[in-house]
């Protein structure tokens, strides 16, 4: 799966955990989704779980800070590091 496809899958997932009335489609890859009000810090747990289940990301082993998963770019970087 290439980065663009991963990004599209992530956006689809993020829309399913976004706060009511918010969508992740138009947000910049580097913007923080929590700061933008799209998700809350507990949705980050669902993101971690999603990355573990679907991309084999073990954040602890990779030394990735959960706060770094606040942006789409952060999530794509975590996936890339898990695949290295």
């Amino acid at each position: 799966m290439d980065r663009q496809q991963q990004r599209e899958n992530l956006i689809e997932f993020l829309n399913s955990v976004a706060r009511p009335g918010y969508r992740a489609d138009d947000i910049d890859d580097h913007s923080n989704l929590i700061d933008a009000g799209i998700i809350d810090s507990f949705a980050l747990i669902q993101i971690i779980f999603h990355l573990e289940q679907n991309y084999g990301c073990n954040l602890q082993a990779l030394g990735i800070d959960p706060a770094d998963l606040g942006s789409i770019n952060g999530m794509l970087t975590a996936i890339a590091r898990a695949n290295e």
Partner: peptide, 29 residues
């Protein structure tokens, strides 16, 4: 209940999430 906790005392909740919730969650795979 969860939403209230998030809105009532945000910085205390963030502290607990960052220093207790995430580390526990990540260790208990």
């Amino acid at each position: 209940v969860l939403e209230f906790w998030n809105r009532y005392y945000y910085y205390f909740k963030e502290l607990l999430v960052e220093f207790f919730f995430y580390p526990t969650y990540l260790r208990l795979r």
